[in-house]
Nucleic acid binder design. Structure first.
Lengths: 348, 348
DNA sequence: TCTACGGCAGAAAGCGCTTTCTATCGTCGC
DNA sequence: GCGACGATAGAAAGCGCTTTCTGCCGTAGA
């Protein structure tokens, strides 16, 4: 039925061992023999049995990329970048060829753990966890435990956009400086003269949410400005849309609204428009991430640009072992303030 | 080092066979024995060796989802839906537990084939190909050959948004009626009174591109209206942006522009705005897909809504074997015309 | 009481590959 | 011209699991 290594060996008149060596290319094989084997492979249309190979070699060529929401371009861009970095890693002859697969956790801790177990089962070569994590201590501990077991078993673990696990030396981490980004954004608004700023935050129990919010508060505190109303929601348009009513109810005098990310900001803009309020005339709005559509929003969104693509590529390289983890701790990747048309000095 | 089945067996004082049976749950095991085994599994923190298991059982729990561009919400939404349908399929005790992984081909035929081979290596349980395909005959043949080999080997193959391979009975296919959608959209424009309509198409060699464009032409032909200028580009914002100059150069009297999809339409709108043209005052613009941001564009985009989420879910179910493929050929999934503010009657 | 049978558990044979260890051959140095 | 060594190829022992084939034991039917 299926063609096996021995079939190829028989046809090439060599031993299975030789075929294996030709395919893996880590042992000297005479050029003539190699050609004969390759020809047989070709003729038989042979495909290596992955499980058998992984079993015997105790490793696999799978790299798992875990993301919170694959439908969100924030993750899509990073995952895409990582995946191409990993795919290209297959530079040399053989061996480097890895299969990067992305797994969608939907932000659910259980699914995150399930995927990790599944990846562990498969003896994945590496795992990349993208995006902020839940701050529930139980979940954190469970994840950390699982990751360190995997690391022990030889799986490379890379964190991208998620705080490093304290004390885990096995893990490479790339973290975004969400706090500084939040600070910078709010400082910009303060600089324009805003003093009544509403905030639409993400889910309360996520690191990303907390850090951005903390940055916002730090900027406020530094300027001696009182904190405005804050509403928590999901990282989606609907949350932004819904938050506006609440924010305005809590402080009708708001002159600016900061959103947890660009998608939320879009929802905020929509709601504002529906109320007949102009942006930035009546209220300024700012987002975070600088997703591709943000420049096309009307008005174009002021936001904080995160190097999503670059970070994805770096995460991919770290996972491949092509690039070494920055020694001596990871300094966070900064975000860049991008000022566009959705923010302006408050009226009057 | 690593805990194996035998370790568990030893601790539970049963044979490895029994442990395997408990874990797979497809053979009668006395309740007391089962509990003993489960307890040992727990205590030893045992994780099944996937490769070994796949090797012995000649199947794996991997489901591959191939997409053209994971950073594009069009694919993100479908992939996400498919993945959750597959994840939930793990309803019953054991066995149903599948790992859905998404693979980003970047629209490259080679990478598509590479991923397929890798998935074939892993003896994937199923493969879902999402989105239109390249129309190159060589590639089509290669893909079809590979898919049918995989199908023979027991991998379920599902096509979602891609035309079925003629004569391949193994393959379930879900196709979007891009042609009808294109027709409907252009008819809408014609109905408003437009007769000089530009078209920004996707890459020329993709099925999706061709079908949408054909629908457009059919509508034009049916109304006896001459075809306007057409420009091909990628399915991204930049292409839409760049196309405007060319379109307007070819016919400065254009009153409407139809874009290959919403992302392209956004680029078109941006370029128009930069030229000081108002939408829909000076020109109407229409997109395709109805991605989440389209409703928030200003003006909100007229477009054709495709049931991305539903289709993804169905594709996932088909891959799981939970849902049977529609017998007697697949009738295409229709798109729904969504009229919003970016289209209006041409001026004067 | 004896036989038959159903319900469980174990033994053991692989699944298809990798990899150590061993064997062979040709060639080089003296 | 002889022993040794480098370069290749083969034999065979697993990797950790699944599953068929047996076997045991207890109960039910006669």
């Amino acid at each position: 039925m299926t063609v096996t290594l021995s079939d190829v060996a028989a046809r090439a008149r060599v031993s299975p061992a030789t075929v294996s060596r030709v395919l893996n290319g880590n042992y000297p094989v005479a050029a003539s023999t190699r050609e004969r084997v390759l020809k047989a492979v070709e003729e038989l249309d042979y495909v290596l049995n992955g499980p058998a190979s992984s079993l015997a070699a105790a490793t696999s060529d799978l790299v798992g990329v875990l993301v919170n929401d694959i439908a969100d371009p924030f993750f899509g861009i990073m995952a895409s970048a990582a995946q191409s970095a990993i795919g290209e890693g297959a530079s040399g002859r053989a061996g480097g060829e890895k299969l990067a697969v992305v797994c969608n956790t939907g932000g659910s801790p259980e699914r995150e753990l399930t995927y990790l177990t599944l990846l562990q089962r498969q003896r994945a070569a590496a795992v990349i966890l993208m995006g902020g994590s839940l701050e529930d201590p139980a979940h954190l501990a469970a994840t950390a435990a699982k990751l360190s077991r995997m690391a022990e078993a030889g799986t490379r673990v890379v964190l991208c956009g998620r705080p490093p696990v304290p004390g885990d030396a096995h893990t490479a981490a790339l973290v975004f400086d969400n706090r500084a980004g939040g600070r910078r954004l709010t400082r910009h608004l303060l600089g324009l003269g805003h003093t009544r700023i509403g905030y639409v935050a993400g889910p309360a129990d996520r690191t990303t949410t907390r850090h951005r919010l903390e940055g916002h508060r730090e900027a406020l505190a530094a300027a001696g400005v009182a904190e405005g109303p804050t509403v928590h929601g999901l990282y989606d348009r609907a949350s932004g849309h819904a938050a506006v009513a609440e924010l305005l109810a809590r402080d009708p005098g708001l002159t600016a609204i900061v959103a947890a990310n660009d998608t939320v900001a879009l929802g905020v803009c929509a709601a504002l428009r529906e109320r007949g309020l102009s942006i930035p005339g009546d209220l300024s709005v700012a987002g975070f991430d600088d997703l591709p559509f943000s420049v096309d929003a009307v008005p174009a969104l002021t936001t904080v640009r995160l190097p999503l693509h670059d970070s994805g590529v770096r995460a991919g390289r770290l996972a491949m072992g092509t690039e070494e983890a920055p020694a001596g701790g990871t300094e966070p990747v900064p975000g860049e303030l991008v000022v566009r048309d959705s923010t302006a000095a408050p009226r009057g």
